[in-house]
């Protein structure tokens, strides 16, 4: 498993990155942790004649917890997320999800930016970011722009990011209420059979708001507005849970693979979502 030959660059700043992207267009690609990209290159499923390593570009590895939002640099790794105490206090769902990604070695390398920019429906961060209503900051030759996570994913490996843009940060409104990231997988190191990200707020005994997103159940992550809406105003009784699950099932479109046939995936999606909602509720 040897990748095809390529030219390697390690620019020291964003201008350097953008210049190379500009010059080589489609033939150039940025690399963060490389733990999605390198396996694809080794299997010769991705051909990257010009590989731009982002590791020396500053300003992308900070985690800033503000009063109403959190900013996570694109180069923050999954293990950084797990280790950051202020982040764990402000948005514990991130830690809960990060711990369910791959294994310790991969988490040391895999970055938030790479995970959300990759566009692989199996990645866990995209659904999570949709649940949290994150915004992705993209930088290109024409400057900076923000795209909501909920609008970012178009199809497998197709996102709103232009080839010449770099994702620099993820900004999340400070999450409120209870949370859960529930994932079923075959073993450590596997992507989700089904996963659900849930963030819920409570007023009295009633659900005030609910955000729900699902992973690996369509060719993109699925933010199910209808599923969240089915919970709002209820006391999360069985009828509400059933309605939410039904709404979610309307929004997903899983395909058959080694993890199982469609009927199974839909069933598990429903079960996982119920569990996630109940766990989030218990923490709200």
């Amino acid at each position: 498993m040897i990748p095809a030959a390529f030219e390697y660059y390690r620019p020291q700043d964003m201008a350097g990155v953008l210049a190379i992207l500009e010059e080589h267009g489609d033939d150039a690609r940025v690399m963060a942790g490389g733990h999605s990209l390198i396996p694809m290159m080794k299997l010769r499923m991705a051909e990257v004649p010009h590989l731009i390593d982002l590791q020396d570009v500053g300003g992308m590895s900070g985690i800033e917890v503000g009063t109403d939002s959190i900013r996570i640099g694109a180069m923050v790794t999954q293990s950084d997320i797990i280790d950051d105490a202020s982040l764990a206090a402000a948005a514990p769902i991130l830690r809960e999800a990060a711990l369910q990604i791959a294994d310790p070695q991969v988490r040391y390398m895999g970055t938030v930016g790479g995970n959300v920019a990759n566009g692989d429906p199996g990645n866990d961060m995209p659904g999570l970011m949709q649940c949290l209503d994150a915004r992705f900051t993209l930088v290109g030759a024409d400057g900076e722009r923000d795209v909501p996570a909920r609008d970012f994913y178009e199809a497998a490996y197709m996102t709103a990011r232009e080839d010449e843009e770099v994702l620099t940060a993820v900004t999340i409104p400070l999450p409120k209420g209870g949370y859960a990231y529930e994932k079923q997988k075959r073993k450590i190191g596997d992507y989700a059979t089904a996963a659900a990200a849930v963030q819920i707020t409570k007023e009295g005994d009633v659900c005030a708001s609910a955000a729900i997103a699902m992973t690996n159940l369509s060719d993109t992550p699925v933010y199910s507005e209808a599923a969240g809406a089915a919970l709002v105003g209820t006391a999360l009784d069985d009828a509400a849970l059933t309605a939410a699950a039904a709404a979610m099932l309307n929004d997903i479109d899983p395909t058959e693979d080694n993890r199982g046939p469609i009927a199974f995936k839909k069933h598990v999606a429903g079960v996982i979502l119920r569990r996630a909602i109940l766990r989030a509720w218990s923490r709200a």
């Binding site: 075959r186 993890r259 199982g260 009927a263 199974f264 069933h267 598990v268």
Partner: peptide
């Protein structure tokens, strides 16, 4: 007996 086949039995 992976997850989906166990599930199928139950189903």
């Amino acid at each position: 007996h992976d997850h989906w086949r166990i599930w199928r039995t139950a189903n």
